[in-house]
Design a protein around this nucleic acid. Structure first.
Length: 430
DNA sequence: CTGGGGATGGGGCCC
DNA sequence: CGGGCCCCATCCCCA
């Protein structure tokens, strides 16, 4: 837009910023503003449906969508980046194509962009959330998350009270007709939708799980905050809160056939390569089983606790590896001089719940000389166990102890593998 | 402060 | 499909 000055010169009109504005009384109100936004959006939506002034085409799995680049720019971080890069070619229609999600999913998102109405149901919520994550639409992700949480809430309350409670979830980013639409969505949910994630714990158990999760979050090392596939990295989805503690990855996995699209990568010369896409990040895997394993890094569940130090692991092999290196001194390497040793020429040193081997030389240098009279039960931390004593302890040791402090202090050397529910404090031996 | 090694976690893939 | 192994990246600890 240009302004022509009195002297005939032209200069662009610069809209004053908020800080530049004079403190004048403006005839605005929340209703007026919302009404204006609503009318504007409706007008844009009409234009889109009539394909008027559409300057952007989006190809999704062969299906063509037309839209306004300004609207897409304002709604999606992905389009913001895409359109910014192509800003020099303003006159050329912008084009984008996607194969990572279905046309229906994109239609749902596009309808939301132009109307503020997000048509979610249990069959599309995960895929919409996945696409929103791809398109960097934080508000859509948040609504999907709310939908899942509220579905979970419904399920929990159904399980406990057998009554359906109304749930307050903000389904749209627009004030106008919000109540009407909420009522519509609620009605639809109460009559049609099945919760994506079934709650299997009662509310008090949920509270307990929350406490455990919080403790675990605080207790975990810094690493957990910077992991490759934590929700923080990829999307704000926090499934530790959205799901129950009972095999969350299994629950998600059970729903995969219907909620996760199978992404086909079609090559001209070869058969389509089917890969399974994680609904919470961009990761894809060849096998569904691998996706199930991967989902644990999103759910945060750690079903394999170490009975010696109470540390929990996502995989049995990790627990086993941890146990053998930390509590069993399986590595035949002197911890001090790193030389390779055998069970004959080395001794196991017990330090708290940790055990490691020292060669004879390092033993003498450390002053931990083997003494047959040593009673391990009276030694301070740092005690030395003879091989025979260690074997005796192996035979007699039991990890199943009632007091966790005792577990940590008096570590045996037999691994009892237990798979527990993530929120369960009383694991059952397997 | 820095580099090396250990511990841990995640992915690929074989059996 | 689960178990297990290997590999690699990252983080933490310590000299």
């Amino acid at each position: 837009m240009e302004m022509v000055c009195e002297n005939g010169t032209r200069r662009p009109y610069r809209t004053p910023s908020e800080s530049d504005r004079q403190p004048v009384h403006r005839w605005t109100s929340a209703d007026m503003s919302a009404n204006h936004h609503s009318c504007l959006l409706k007008q844009l939506d009409q234009q889109r449906r009539q394909e008027l002034f559409c300057d952007c085409t989006v190809l999704v799995a062969g299906c063509l969508f037309r839209a306004h680049r300004n609207v897409l720019f304002g709604s999606s971080g992905y389009f913001r980046m895409l359109l910014s890069q192509g800003a020099r070619d303003k006159l050329e229609p912008a084009k984008a194509s996607f194969d990572a999600f279905t046309p229906d999913t994109f239609a749902t998102i596009l309808d939301f962009v132009y109307s503020g109405h997000l048509a979610l149901d249990s069959s599309n919520v995960i895929e919409v959330m996945s696409a929103a994550s791809y398109l960097q639409m934080d508000n859509v992700i948040a609504y999907c998350k709310s939908f899942i949480e509220s579905s979970l809430e419904i399920s929990t309350k159904e399980a406990t009270e057998d009554t359906l409670q109304p749930h307050s979830v903000l389904w749209e980013h627009q004030d106008d007709s919000k109540d009407e639409y909420e009522a519509e969505v609620k009605n639809e949910q109460s009559t049609q939708c099945q919760p994506v994630l079934e709650a299997s714990l009662k509310e008090d158990q949920m509270a307990q799980f929350e406490a455990v999760s919080e403790t675990r979050r605080r207790g975990t090392r810094k690493r957990s905050a910077t992991h490759r596939y934590t929700p923080d990295d990829t999307s704000p989805i926090d499934l530790q809160r959205a799901t129950t503690g009972t095999h969350k990855a299994d629950e998600l996995y059970a729903t995969l056939p219907t909620i996760v699209g199978v992404m086909g990568v079609f090559n001209k010369d070869s058969a389509p390569t089917v890969r399974f896409k994680c609904p919470f990040c961009t990761h894809t895997v060849k096998r569904k089983a691998d996706l199930k394993r991967h989902l644990r890094c999103h759910t945060g569940e750690r079903p394999y606790p170490c009975q010696a130090c109470s540390k929990r692991f996502t995989r049995l092999e990790h627990l086993r590896s941890h146990f053998e290196t930390i509590h069993q001194a399986r590595k035949l390497v002197c911890r001090k001089c790193k030389c390779h040793v055998t069970e004959q020429n080395s001794r196991v040193v017990c330090e708290g719940s940790r055990r490691y081997r020292l060669c004879e030389t390092c033993l003498q240098e450390s002053g931990l000389v083997a003494n047959d009279d040593t009673d391990p039960s009276t030694e301070e931390p740092g005690l030395l166990l003879g091989v025979e004593e260690e074997l005796d302890r192996n035979r007699n040791a039991s990890w199943v102890m009632e007091d966790e402090d005792d577990l940590a202090e008096d570590s045996g050397t037999d691994l009892i593998i237990q798979e527990v529910e993530d929120s369960d404090e009383e694991p059952s031996a397997k």
